[in-house]
Amino acid sequence: MLAGTGGARAQGREVRLLMLGDSITAGYGLARGEGPPARIEALLRAKGRQVRVLDAGVSGDTTAGGRARLEWALADRPNAAIVALGGNDALRGLTPQQMRANLTAILDGLAARDIPTLLAGMMAPPNLGAEYGREFTAVFTELAAARPQLVFYPFLLEGVAGDPALNQADRIHPNPRGAQVLAERMLPAIETLLDRVAPSASG
Rank of each mutant, 00 (worst) to 15 (best):
140 F>W: 08
161 A>G: 06
152 F>A: 13
159 G>M: 09
74 L>W: 00
140 F>T: 10
165 A>R: 12
178 G>P: 12
144 A>W: 14
105 A>D: 04
119 L>A: 07
152 F>W: 08
142 E>G: 02
91 L>G: 14
61 D>R: 04
106 I>M: 02
113 R>Y: 00
89 D>K: 14
68 A>W: 01
194 L>M: 10
53 V>Y: 08
17 L>E: 00
197 V>W: 04
173 H>V: 03
104 T>Q: 11
93 G>N: 09
167 N>C: 09
191 E>I: 07
169 A>L: 06
117 T>F: 03
137 T>W: 04
60 G>L: 05
15 V>T: 11
3 A>Y: 10
98 Q>I: 03
78 P>L: 11
14 E>I: 09
141 T>A: 11
4 G>L: 03
94 L>Q: 14
153 Y>M: 04
89 D>A: 05
12 G>T: 12
31 A>D: 06
28 Y>G: 08
166 L>R: 07
135 E>I: 03
24 I>V: 15
58 V>F: 13
91 L>M: 15
197 V>K: 14
172 I>H: 10
31 A>T: 05
32 R>S: 08
143 L>S: 09
142 E>H: 07
160 V>T: 11
202 S>Q: 15
59 S>Y: 04
75 A>G: 15
193 L>D: 14
85 L>A: 05
8 A>C: 11
154 P>Q: 13
174 P>I: 07
136 F>V: 11
179 A>P: 01
90 A>H: 11
203 G>E: 06
164 P>T: 12
